[in-house]
Amino acid sequence: MAKIFLGTAGVPFSAKKGTTIDGVKAIRDLSLNAMEVEFVQGVRMKRETAQETGRIAKELGVRLSVHAPYFINLCSSEKEKVEASKQRILDTADRAEAMGADAIAIHAAFYGKLKPEECYEMVKAEIGEVIDKARENGIHDVKFGIETMAKDTALGTLDEVIGLSKEVKGVIPYIDWAHTFARQGGKIDYKQIIDTLVKELGLVHINSHFESLKLNKGKYVDVHVPIEANAPPFDQLAETLVKDDRISITLICESPELERDALKMKAVLEKYGYNLR
């Protein structure tokens, strides 16, 4: 049975204050063991704060990951927007490295007027440049996670993120299970996806998000709702993970109910015989 890391996207509601450090402490108080630090509105954390966050997380046994800003589009037709996007990714990686986070989640691009394959090639080149610059700046441990996306207008099919992970050293898939479920028309085969990640990429750890999505006019849209909507069902993922000893996984709850739903996920894992530690 592989190791499972479970926590929230950002500071739990139950934290004494809204700081990241208070969030890490609240995670441990909740008997969870992971937290994704949210830079979605911009990278405003000082490097010293990132280092202190990492020190406390390590002491408490909380695994950290980081979400890069939403304002990223590596396929923008405006060069200055692409360059600003690359800098945001680099700043995110810098703070992530300082706090000892293992990976960052990136919403990489929108196709815009480009064909999907043209956007893919552009992202491949631009993220490659970012990683080269990161290595020059002493950022060696953080993995650059290209997130699977729900919208048909965004780069982020499962095949695209796997392809980028094969072609660009330092890139990994950051699997948003609900986004993939939506992108596949409301269907998901967890075991098949895990098998593919292990077989094609040799992954030993999966970074991922979990939430449910809203059904609108017969189509799942990128509006996060509590997990009892079963879109997709967590129960099946939990059972699959507990039976699979090939990989460890980070499950970050992106439900609007944050720790309430993370604790529900924990209870489902326990039902299948897995206890967080």
Results as ranks from 00 to 15, higher is better:
40 V>Y: 07
40 V>C: 09
41 Q>N: 05
41 Q>V: 09
41 Q>K: 10
42 G>P: 06
42 G>C: 10
42 G>L: 05
42 G>A: 03
42 G>Y: 13
42 G>H: 07
43 V>M: 07
43 V>I: 00
43 V>Y: 02
43 V>C: 04
44 R>P: 00
45 M>W: 00
46 K>N: 09
46 K>F: 03
46 K>L: 05
46 K>S: 13
46 K>R: 12
47 R>T: 03
47 R>N: 08
47 R>G: 01
48 E>C: 01
48 E>R: 12
48 E>Q: 07
48 E>D: 12
49 T>H: 01
49 T>R: 00
50 A>R: 02
50 A>W: 01
51 Q>N: 09
51 Q>C: 05
52 E>W: 07
52 E>K: 14
53 T>E: 09
53 T>G: 01
54 G>H: 08
55 R>V: 01
55 R>Q: 09
55 R>C: 02
56 I>G: 05
56 I>L: 13
57 A>C: 08
57 A>W: 06
57 A>D: 11
58 K>L: 05
59 E>G: 01
59 E>N: 10
59 E>P: 04
59 E>Y: 04
60 L>P: 06
60 L>T: 01
60 L>W: 07
60 L>E: 03
61 G>T: 09
61 G>P: 12
62 V>D: 08
62 V>L: 10
62 V>P: 06
62 V>S: 06
62 V>I: 12
63 R>L: 15
63 R>F: 11
63 R>A: 15
63 R>E: 12
63 R>Q: 08
64 L>K: 11
64 L>S: 02
64 L>Q: 04
64 L>Y: 02
64 L>I: 09
65 S>W: 05
65 S>I: 13
65 S>Y: 08
65 S>P: 07
66 V>P: 03
66 V>D: 03
67 H>G: 13
67 H>A: 15
67 H>M: 08
67 H>T: 02
68 A>L: 04
68 A>R: 04
68 A>Y: 07
69 P>S: 12
69 P>K: 14
69 P>R: 13
69 P>D: 13
69 P>E: 11
70 Y>T: 07
70 Y>H: 11
70 Y>K: 05
71 F>T: 05
71 F>H: 09
71 F>L: 15
71 F>M: 13
72 I>N: 04
72 I>A: 07
73 N>Y: 02
73 N>T: 02
73 N>D: 15
74 L>S: 07
74 L>V: 08
75 C>S: 15
75 C>N: 08
75 C>I: 05
75 C>F: 02
75 C>D: 00
76 S>W: 10
76 S>I: 06
76 S>R: 04
76 S>P: 06
76 S>H: 11
77 S>N: 11
77 S>A: 15
78 E>R: 14
78 E>T: 14
79 K>N: 11
79 K>H: 13
79 K>F: 03
80 E>V: 06
81 K>F: 10
82 V>Y: 04
82 V>Q: 06
82 V>I: 15
83 E>Q: 13
83 E>F: 04
83 E>T: 06
83 E>S: 07
83 E>K: 15
83 E>G: 00
84 A>E: 15
85 S>G: 12
85 S>E: 02
85 S>F: 02
86 K>D: 10
88 R>M: 05
88 R>V: 01
88 R>Q: 13
88 R>T: 03
90 L>F: 13
90 L>E: 11
90 L>I: 11
90 L>H: 09
90 L>P: 03
90 L>C: 10
91 D>F: 00
91 D>K: 10
91 D>W: 03
91 D>N: 10
91 D>C: 04
